[in-house]
Design a protein around this nucleic acid. Sequence first.
DNA 1: TCTAGTCAAGAGTATTTTGGTCGGAGACTA
DNA 2: TAGTCTCCGACCAAAATACTCTTGACTAGA
Lengths: 159, 159
Amino acid sequence: MLKFSKKADYALLALQYMAMVQYGINAVPRVVNTKEIAEEHNIPLELLAKVLQTLARHQLIESHHNGPKGGYVLGREPKDITIAQVLESIEGPLGLTDCSQEKYQSTCDQMARCNIRTPLLKIQDSVLQLLNGMSIEDMMVDESPFVIIESVKPEGVSS
Amino acid sequence: MLKFSKKADYALLALQYMAMVQYGINAVPRVVNTKEIAEEHNIPLELLAKVLQTLARHQLIESHHNGPKGGYVLGREPKDITIAQVLESIEGPLGLTDCSQEKYQSTCDQMARCNIRTPLLKIQDSVLQLLNGMSIEDMMVDESPFVIIESVKPEGVSS
DNA sequence: TCTAGTCAAGAGTATTTTGGTCGGAGACTA
DNA sequence: TAGTCTCCGACCAAAATACTCTTGACTAGA
């Protein structure tokens, strides 16, 4: 419940990676291709390809060109790519319930006596605000890829 | 994306209805049965039955007894039933990503180089806080079903 | 005690969504 | 211009979800 889809996960992962390559500390900006990201993160190449295509279509990234040395770059600065935009590109308009999209409202035969629509929209609003307030930049937690989370390891390795 | 499942919708609808019957203005508290709710809201009887069973198993509602005049009542006051509890009963533990549940962490082969886990958990936390802060009572917005929320509109959300 | 109304629980089916695959078309390099 | 390498869009399979059916147990009231 409330789970991101794999595609959304992959998208965030990829964007974060690209952001690090282009804007990270000591970064040497360059074009990155699908294969590189897929191998880096161990995700199915073809699926990631599709995800990136979608992101490109929504201008979050730009396909540099085809052929050898082709690839993608971010379409804007990391701080200008919000989590909400990413999710929306991948999954279509966000909404806790169908009736938050106007075009579906007519199909809901309980609109009239639906008392939960309003409070639901309120929740949804807050969630959206949250997702809109967070960008790829916020995911660029410096360089260290290895952050030991103590809950993984049984005994106090953290020190 | 981020959508509630139908079952979750039905659960909220049912709880809100029961709350109105028991605690609403001028309410005459009584037991309500599955059929009544299903007809009231036009949802498949059998499916709703299963949803209510689940809620009962989680003590959010109580089955009054079998047989004629049987039915359900709320297990506690509306303000003590949070949205998060409802969702969790229906859909199991909530979490934006698998690795928020400890038992799945080991199965994720990219834990080591996963840079998005931490920020994702942060988002998730906020969402959960939101859902925990809202209860069935908040859904008892007296009788008027149509309240237009202006914040849905694109402009000036944050104001 | 018999009947009808109700909750309880399981298995089974259909439909939608999601994850993943394939075969090209275009573009660059040599 | 041949040979790669890349993006791209249509396609397929598997999984999750929504919904149904059947059976059973229990209770109130005739």
